[in-house]
Design a protein around this nucleic acid. Structure first.
Length: 665
DNA sequence: TTAGGGTTAG
């Protein structure tokens, strides 16, 4: 070890490792309290509590600063008990010691203990009062915090800022802004911290005028280069849908701060500019700014919005390298990304990686399984969730009921609905009724479904009546369908889905006069049927098709593939179900029409462009027709590829001549 | 220039 001329006074600890430093005090004849305190502080910052405590124990002379630091160190390293023991043992306590302990209790959610300690304090300064107000806010006690602020003897700028940020963070940004106005009114000068919270509030309530005015003020005061202020400004402009202003605020200087970058990334996402968001994410990585949990969450959400499965997978890889895939926010985003991009297997794997699963994680996986018709998986996840002690909420039940509907689980569906109504305090909402109606309809219990709609405690909405109407279609019950349709048209005379369902039902029954009548009323109502559209996303580009579409650059090859498949299917004895063509045309034309449905064009596009043997994912805006459903089962078998189709309500996994929905959708 | 109180993205 290098000799020291005067290690006590002049040792320079910079450029040394903690362990090198560690040797110094024990070799010194009399330890300097100041340097030991500094060392303890370093250990604590590195979460090396044992080393900190050892040094603390070995130090013969300990002043109150060291005691206070050690208490705080125990608490911030997660050992409240030790902190409390030191607090009890310390020979003399000052106001800082008491405040440190009050904060410790709040940190662990021990509100009553914190309040008790505050009452016992022999002396309370403004910082102690501020700690109380802040602690109450962070534990959700808005009213108590406000009351305390009202009665505290002195208020400084920190007291006011605590109020503003506390209210803002608990969703009461309008009240936060009135406190801000009051503060300015009495002549109290806000600091950059105050401005941050006020700007955040402006964004949440959409007060563009006040936010811009504050922006002017912070510029004048020279706070505009403060990273906190910049990040708040970017988010404020994003919330106000002023993306250009976000970019302007960001471009004020070259940033190295991850939060500022993430604000921009998230801001783009919040304004549906997902490509820009992902570009920002790429720039961050190129510039060596290490993305954190939030950056990953936003980037994954943007990938999901773009249905860019391959990009999402790349971002997932980057998250794994940083060990962030186990984080709940990142993990939840991954589960939703994968399941919405048709890849429920990776959704489940990502879910399993999450270390601390929260209600959002459980809901994400249950809803994901529901969308993919994996009812049994969803129910099994639900039982696992119950074992962890996390209580289900209304989303969990929507997911469960949807699972039962998409997997045809009538008994389980009834059980969960009854459970929701009788054994929870969760409010039964319209969507729960819609799911139950769906379950009953799809199990052939049309009458019971109608009874349920008629006996509901609230008025049925459009989607409930539509669920019933769809049920009537699959049961071919025209009479009940007409009743449901009447209720729909009473509410919305423009409902395209209802016109289409009804007219298809008449066409099915060969009642062409009624078909014409429905089409006529649809025309009179000025309603236009939404055209069926299917698309495939590759490397962030969306290739979209409508029926008989010839606009794609690869159109010629796509139609060649269509003909090729048509021939292969015919060889396999496939006969198309021409009831789905639904037009008064020659038989041959009807078949050709079916072959030019958008999903078949999209599948052929994916077949000629995707890698050999890889699975194909197609998204569709409407429900897949039954003929396409049968055809795709065979196509999957012939080309030996998995074909995943997401229609308007769920995912279908076609493989080897079968569909995961079991022809039940 | 070693202890307690307020801030940014999701």
């Amino acid at each position: 070890m290098a000799p020291f001329t005067n290690p006590t006074k002049h040792s320079n600890f910079r450029n040394r490792t903690l362990d090198e430093d560690r040797k110094i005090p024990s070799e010194m004849p009399s330890r300097d309290v100041y340097s030991c305190t500094k060392m303890i502080s370093s250990y604590v910052n590195d979460f090396r509590l044992d080393d900190a405590l050892q040094l603390f124990d070995e130090t013969p002379v300990r002043d109150i600063v060291m005691w206070n630091l050690m208490i705080n160190g125990c608490v911030s390293c997660g050992n409240l008990e030790m902190g409390l023991r030191l607090f009890d043992e310390m020979p003399e306590k000052n106001v800082v010691s008491w405040t440190t302990m009050v904060n410790a209790f709040f940190k662990y959610g021990m509100i009553e203990e914190a309040k008790g300690l505050f009452r016992e304090m022999p002396v309370r300064d403004t910082a102690a009062w501020n700690a109380m107000v802040h602690g109450l806010f962070t534990n959700g006690r808005v009213e108590e915090a406000t009351r305390l602020f009202d009665v505290m003897p002195d208020r400084n700028v920190i007291s006011w800022t605590t109020m503003i940020s506390g209210l803002d963070q608990l969703g009461r940004s309008d009240e936060a802004l009135s406190i801000f106005r009051k503060m300015v009114g009495i002549g109290m000068k806000p600091t950059s911290t105050t401005f941050c919270s006020a700007i955040s509030s402006c964004g949440k309530v959409g007060d563009f005028i006040l936010g811009s005015r504050i922006h002017g003020q912070v510029t004048k005061l020279g706070y505009v280069f403060d990273t906190y202020v910049i990040a708040s400004l970017i988010t404020f402009y994003a919330n106000c849908k002023r993306v250009e202003e976000c970019v302007k605020a960001f471009n004020e200087k070259l940033h190295q701060n991850v939060v500022v970058w993430t604000s921009l990334l998230t801001g783009y996402g919040a304004n549906d500019k997902h490509e820009d968001a992902l570009r920002v994410f790429g720039d961050m990585i190129r510039l060596g700014i290490i993305p954190n949990q939030s950056s990953f969450t936003s980037a994954l959400n943007s990938s999901r919005e773009m249905e860019a499965h391959d990009w999402g997978k790349g971002i997932h890889g980057a998250a794994i390298k940083l060990g962030l895939e186990t984080d709940a926010f990142v993990g939840n985003a991954l589960v939703v990304l994968y399941s919405e991009c048709g890849n429920i297997r990776d959704g489940v794997l990502s879910f399993k990686e999450i270390t601390s699963k929260n209600i959002v994680s459980w809901n994400a996986i249950i809803v994901g399984c529901a969308q993919h018709g994996r009812g049994e998986w969803a129910i099994s996840f639900f039982s696992q969730m119950a074992k962890t002690g996390i209580n289900p909420d209304e989303i969990t039940f929507t997911g469960l009921l949807n699972s039962c509907s998409h997997s045809g689980l009538l008994k389980k569906g009834r059980h969960f609905f009854e459970c929701l109504q009788q054994h929870t305090t969760i409010e039964v909402k319209l969507e729960h009724y819609a799911c139950m109606v769906d379950i009953l309809c799809r199990s052939g219990k049309l009458e019971e479904a109608e009874d349920l709609v008629n006996s509901m405690p609230m008025e049925a909405n459009l989607s409930i009546w539509l669920a019933l109407l769809s049920g009537c279609r699959s049961q071919s019950n025209l009479e009940a369908a007409e009743r449901a349709a009447k209720n729909i048209f009473d509410k919305d005379p423009h409902c395209a889905a209802a016109y289409v369902l009804l007219s298809n039902m008449y066409a099915f029954a060969g009642r062409w006069t009624d078909v014409a009548r429905v089409r006529m009323s649809m025309k009179r109502a000025g309603t236009i049927k939404q055209p069926g559209r299917s698309w495939v996303t590759q490397k962030g580009s969306c290739h979209s098709f409508i029926a008989s579409d010839k606009s794609h650059p690869l159109s010629e090859k796509i139609y060649e593939k269509v003909e090729w498949l048509r021939e292969r299917l015919r060889e396999n004895g496939y006969a198309s179900d021409q009831r789905f063509a639904l037009h008064d045309v020659e038989e041959e034309q009807k078949e050709a029409q079916l072959w030019h449905h958008s999903e078949r064009l999209a599948i052929c596009f994916a077949l000629i462009t995707g890698a050999e043997g890889s699975s194909i994912t197609v998204m569709k805006n409407l429900r897949t027709c039954e003929d396409c459903h049968s055809a795709i089962k065979l196509i999957a078998k012939i080309v030996q590829r998995e074909i995943i189709v997401r229609d308007s309500s769920r995912f279908h996994h076609f493989r080897d001549g079968f569909c995961s929905c079991g022809d039940y959708w």
